[in-house]
């Protein structure tokens, strides 16, 4: 039986470790994400943030350790099945289906739940009944006017919005956002931050983000990773004052640089 304390955390990892040919990218990470919070994972380049992320969504297989989602051991599941449990991720490079229209993009997230995915003998007009819900989601994200453009024609910020709209169409219990602000300019950042705040209502969000002001304003709790290990945890005010965090950001340089970054690149590729 679960104690109330256990269900307080939606995600719990225990001793999570990933080794790439002798290099340890993530080492013995015990991460707990509180239900309903926005939790940020930060750290210098090569700290193992994205690897951690890929482990939780099973895009990578951990070398050791376990992952629990809602008290259930998900360590052995496949990525598609993780998504079906309600744990949906985004990607560093904005993930859309570029040559499909916006409506089709969002509809793809609705199709599976509606049971319209294996039928090759039915006309695609069967999907029209999902258009209403898709348009609703698009207008929530200010995309209704562009519904019949293809995703490739959108600006970067709008692609992000489309990605979020698609993700939310699954009505996931938890969102994992991998650098949602990567490559974005000022206005876009403000807009996407607002979208994330909106999406986080009644949900748990775990995000990797480099932009510290975004992290400071959005997140309830922050975990700082360095060299694959948890360095500090707490609110922004708490962690930003810690000398070891400042040192990890400012004082590392060449000592961890090369190998760590290579492993990081390998993990994201």
């Amino acid at each position: 039986m679960q104690t109330p304390e256990q269900t307080d955390y939606i995600i719990e990892t225990a001793g999570l470790t990933k080794e790439f040919r002798g290099f340890t990218a993530v080492n013995n990470v015990n991460l707990k994400v509180r239900r309903g919070s926005i939790h940020a994972l930060i750290g210098p380049n090569g700290a193992g943030k994205t690897t951690c992320f890929n482990l939780i969504t099973k895009f990578l297989t951990p070398t050791r350790g376990t992952i629990h989602f809602n008290g259930r051991d998900i360590t052995a599941l496949k990525p598609a099945d993780i998504a079906r449990l309600g744990l949906v991720r985004s990607f560093q490079i904005s993930a859309t289906f570029p040559h499909l229209t916006l409506v089709e993009n969002v509809r793809l997230a609705l199709q599976r739940a509606a049971g319209l995915h294996y039928q090759f003998w039915r006309s695609e007009h069967a999907l029209d009944k999902l258009n209403g819900r898709a348009m609703e989601l698009l207008s929530d994200f200010g995309l209704a006017d562009h519904a019949h453009l293809t995703a490739v024609e959108l600006s970067y910020g709008r692609k992000r919005a489309l990605e979020l709209a698609t993700t939310l169409a699954l009505e996931p219990e938890m969102l994992l956002l991998d650098e949602p602000m990567a490559g974005m300019g000022g206005e876009d950042i403000a807009r996407v931050a607002e979208l994330i705040r909106k999406a986080a209502k009644n949900r748990t969000v775990l995000m990797v983000e480099h932009n510290l002001s975004v992290v400071a304003s959005l997140s309830d709790k922050i975990t700082v990773l360095a060299r694959g290990e948890i360095l500090a945890e707490g609110s922004y005010a708490e962690v930003s004052g810690k000398p070891e965090v400042i040192e990890a950001y400012m004082g590392t340089g060449a000592s961890t640089g090369g190998a760590a970054q290579e492993a990081h690149a390998g993990a994201t590729a």
Binding site: T57, D81, V88, R89, A95, P98, R112, T166
Partner: peptide, 12 residues
């Protein structure tokens, strides 16, 4: 168009 994204939407 985007296999990882299709997986992340829960498609096997």
């Amino acid at each position: 168009e985007n296999e990882p994204r299709a997986i992340s939407l829960g498609y096997r």
